[in-house]
């Protein structure tokens, strides 16, 4: 029974973690967006994804 409880907890944990990452939009930014980088010298553009402003 303990093994089953551990397995259920593990599965719920994985789904929960995936849900949190999904809701946070982690790694969901589009490629090829030129964006300013916070604190970058001169506030210029760089090619990358995420971390806008």
């Amino acid at each position: 029974m303990l093994v089953r409880i551990v397995l259920v907890v593990l599965v719920v944990g994985i789904i929960g973690a995936a849900g949190v990452m999904a809701l946070g939009g982690v790694w969901g930014e589009s490629n090829n967006v030129i964006s300013t980088r916070t604190g970058s010298p001169g506030g210029g553009y760089y090619v990358g994804s995420g971390g806008v402003k």
């Binding site: 930014e29 589009s30 090829n32 030129i34 964006s35 300013t36 553009y45 971390g51 806008v52 402003k53």
Partner: peptide, 29 residues
């Protein structure tokens, strides 16, 4: 300026096929 990007929209279709989309999406944080 916060961000800049370029996107293309291309859509082709025939009697029983289609390719591409009339929409282009960009996701930013």
């Amino acid at each position: 300026p916060v961000a800049a990007f370029e996107r293309g929209v291309e859509y082709y279709s025939g009697s029983d096929w289609s390719e591409g989309s009339q929409k282009a999406r960009t996701r930013l944080r």
